[in-house]
Design a protein around this nucleic acid. Structure first.
Lengths: 189, 189
DNA sequence: AGTCCTGTTGTGAGTACTCACTCATTTGTT
DNA sequence: AACAAATGAGTGAGTACTCACAACAGGACT
């Protein structure tokens, strides 16, 4: 299995997959994904041996893209509140301005097409962000919600908030701070 | 098109669909649904003319089942806090003990297979519950989150909470009250 | 009782279609 | 010329849905 020639085509296929799956669900056909990337269907299978391989590569691609966006806005704040708020804002902004990425990533997260191996490989590349969301917070007054629950609540609230910001952008700031307030006032002891 | 003979078979088909779709997604085949209900594939199409009709009937069935469960536990409390908490507990309990119903309903809610007509017909049968969750709360101190946001936050937190209770039942009560606290302390002014 | 008649319900092989995936061929580069 | 990359019609498996028929109920008439 030689390495694919063109990184461009690989990216084009991944972004086409994200866009089309956001609209049609994970069941979107390989034919339409290839067409969207401007290549033949057979070419898709040169880059991703099976559709499952594509799912896993897409999960990795989207997660790393999100992580890169978060890192850019992770200025060091004095207060934990400020730090978490910056993370929150960056997350919401990424979701709103990459809506099809966001939608597809959410579907992949709950899908059984993404293997545990892929998930843990990606997670290990995100340890710096986890640190803020979790290790740091434990030492600073966040409530003792059972393991992982605070993370999940953060994600669930962010997902809801993004939906509302997209649907009604005029009130975007209101949703953003309301969503954060729910998370924060409910999480702090 | 005469009415189907046996209400039993109709229910069996709906419950089979809910169970199989919870495991395999909405794309589960009509063949497997019929097999799960113990009838031939052709029989499914005597009860539901197309798969889309089945989706809509299933949405209605599950929503009404949930509503019935909520009504049973909607004792009148003196405080708004108590009333909403009772609603929260009933919702979580239903999700936990009808997990496949819950999972399938969540997929149907975001699916475009369920028509606006079905949604509004069902909603009109749930007005008494909406009253507590919304009309009542507006008059009693819930924060002025933009329209529908509080509802969505409630649902998102409940979904997350149910996942954790199912995954780790020993700490069920802890998740349940933690989830409610996030909702409540973030929602009250 | 037993046997035909009639209408509806239940059946599953059959149909047309879409899907993921293949491979002989063409295209492009060196 | 030599080689790999790209192509897209072709393949078999699986899909939603159909339809000619089997199964069975309950009268009505011997």
């Amino acid at each position: 299995m030689a390495l694919p020639r063109s990184e461009e085509k690989r990216i084009a296929l991944l972004e086409s997959a994200a866009a089309i799956m956001a609209a049609q669900g994970l069941g979107a056909s390989t034919a339409s994904i290839a067409r969207g990337a401007g290549v033949a269907e057979g070419t898709l299978f040169r880059y991703f041996a099976t559709k499952d391989v594509l799912y896993n590569a897409l999960y990795t691609h989207l997660k790393l893209d999100l992580a890169a966006a978060l890192r850019q806005h992770m200025a060091v704040h004095d207060s934990l509140d400020g730090q978490v708020r910056a993370l929150w804002d960056a997350y919401i902004d990424w979701g709103v301005s990459n809506l099809s990425f966001f939608k597809t990533l959410n579907q992949l997260v709950v899908s059984d097409k993404v293997t545990a191996e892929t998930r843990s490989t990606v997670a290990s590349q995100l340890s710096d962000i986890k640190c803020i969301a979790q290790a740091c917070s434990d030492n600073n007054g966040l409530t003792a919600l059972p393991g992982g629950f605070a993370d999940a609540v953060f994600m669930a609230l962010a997902e809801t908030t993004i939906q509302f910001v997209v649907r009604d952008p005029a009130n975007g700031q209101a949703y953003k701070s309301a969503g954060f307030r729910v998370f924060w006032s409910g999480s702090v002891r």
